[in-house]
C-alpha cells in the first residue's frame, strides 16, 4: 500500500479556534479606542503606539532568537503586538520615545520572556512595563497632555493638565467636595468630549470605545463576562457606598468612567495567562481587583489603582486556581 494510514489517539476532529484568532480578536477589539485616541491626541498617540508595538515585537523576536535560541519564533502569534498596544494605551501621549522603548524591554524581557514566553508569565507584561515606568519616571508618566487641544501636530510640546482622577484625589485630600465640580460631566467622560475632557493616558479617554471592544470580545467568545462585570460592579458598589457616606468621594458613575478602570477591567484583567481558570475564581479575582482599585484610589498614594490592583491579583491567581475548582459532574444534588 503506497498511502500510509495516519494514527493518533482521539479526538481526531479539531475546532477552528487558534491562539492567533484570539490575539488578533483582542487587537480588533482595541481598534475603536485606538481610533479615538488618534482623534484626541493626534500624532503623539500614533508615535507612542507605533513605538511601543514595534519595540515589543522586536524584543520578542530578538530574545527568542538570540537568547532563548528557540527554533520556532512566536512573534506571529500576535501576543507581542497586543502587549505593545496595551502598553501604549497606558502611557501619556507625549512620552519620549526612549522611555517607551525601555518600557517595552521591561514588559517583554522581564515581564514575559524571563518566565519562558507566552503562557508562562505570572504577571501581565504590559502592566509590568507600565509599573516599572511609573516608579522610574514618575514625572514624565504623570504629566498628561489634555485631549483634543493640540491638533494633529502635538507631541512633545503638548499642553498638559489634570486628569479626572487627580481632581478626585485632590477632593479627598482637601476634604472639600466642591473640588469635584471641576470634573467633566459623566457623559463626556463616557464619550470623551474633547472640549471638556481632562487629560489621561492614550487608551483611557473614551470609555464607550472600550466598552464596544469588550462587547465584541464577549460576543466572539474571546473572553467571558465574569471578570469585567465583577470588577465594574464591585467598583460601582464600593465607590457608591463611599459616596453616600461622604460626598468628598466622587459619584460611582464618574469613578467607573474615569481613569484606566475600563481599560483595565476589559482588556488587562482578562488577560488569559494571568487570570484564574475557573468561573468561580474569576469572580473572586474580579471582586478583589475592584476592591483594591477603589482602596488604592481613595486611600493610597497614587491617584490610579487599577494597574497595581491587577498586578497584585495576578500574584494571587495560582492560589485562586488551587482553591477554586469547577463544579464537578455528579456533585450536584439530585
Amino acid at each position: 500500500m503506497a498511502n500510509k494510514l495516519i494514527v493518533s489517539l482521539s479526538p481526531h476532529a479539531h475546532g477552528t479556534d487558534s491562539v492567533e484568532k484570539n490575539m488578533y480578536g483582542v487587537i480588533i477589539a482595541l481598534l475603536p479606542a485606538l481610533i479615538v485616541s488618534f482623534i484626541y491626541f493626534g500624532l503623539g498617540s500614533a508615535i507612542v503606539c507605533c513605538t511601543s508595538v514595534l519595540a515589543c515585537v522586536f524584543f520578542e523576536w530578538a530574545i527568542t532568537k538570540f537568547i532563548l535560541k528557540r527554533e520556532r519564533n512566536t512573534v506571529c502569534d500576535g501576543s507581542a503586538i497586543l502587549t505593545g498596544l496595551l502598553l501604549g494605551f497606558n502611557l501619556p501621549s507625549n512620552l519620549p520615545i526612549w522611555i517607551i522603548i525601555i518600557g517595552a524591554l521591561v514588559a517583554i524581557g522581564i515581564g514575559k520572556m524571563t518566565f519562558g514566553g507566552l503562557g508562562c508569565n505570572p504577571f501581565n507584561p504590559a502592566l509590568v512595563g507600565r509599573a516599572f515606568l511609573l516608579v522610574s519616571f514618575p514625572v514624565q508618566m504623570t504629566t498628561w497632555p489634555v485631549a483634543g487641544q493640540q491638533g494633529i501636530g502635538g507631541y512633545l510640546d503638548a499642553q498638559t493638565g489634570a486628569t479626572p482622577l487627580a481632581i478626585m484625589k485632590e477632593a479627598i485630600k482637601s476634604g472639600d467636595a466642591s473640588v469635584l465640580d471641576k470634573l467633566p460631566d459623566s457623559l463626556s467622560l463616557a464619550l470623551g468630549n474633547p472640549g471638556q475632557l481632562g487629560a489621561g493616558s492614550l487608551g483611557e479617554v473614551c470609555a464607550l470605545a472600550l466598552i464596544i471592544g469588550g462587547i465584541y470580545m464577549i460576543v466572539r467568545k474571546i473572553i467571558t463576562w465574569h471578570i469585567p462585570v465583577s470588577i465594574l460592579l464591585t467598583v460601582f458598589v464600593f465607590s457608591g457606598l463611599m459616596h453616600l457616606a461622604n460626598p468628598i468621594y466622587a459619584s460611582p458613575v464618574d469613578v467607573l468612567l474615569s481613569g484606566g478602570l475600563m481599560l483595565g477591567a476589559i482588556f488587562m484583567a482578562t488577560d488569559y495567562v494571568t487570570s484564574p481558570m475557573t468561573k468561580k475564581g474569576q469572580l473572586i479575582y474580579g471582586v478583589a481587583i475592584g476592591v483594591l482599585t477603589v482602596a488604592i484610589r481613595y486611600f493610597g498614594a497614587y491617584p490610579e489603582g487599577m494597574s497595581f490592583a491587577i498586578l497584585i491579583m495576578n500574584a494571587f491567581t495560582p492560589l485562586i486556581n488551587n482553591y477554586c475548582k469547577p463544579k464537578r459532574y455528579g456533585e450536584v444534588v439530585k
Partner: peptide, 22 residues
C-alpha cells in the same frame, strides 16, 4: 517497514495506548 504514521504526543506511552504504532 513503517506502515502507518503516528501523529500525536511524542511519548512511547501515548503511542502504546494508540495501538501498535507506526
Amino acid at each position: 517497514p513503517r506502515i502507518a504514521e503516528y501523529d500525536g504526543l511524542k511519548t512511547c506511552r501515548a503511542v502504546h495506548a494508540c495501538g501498535a504504532g507506526e
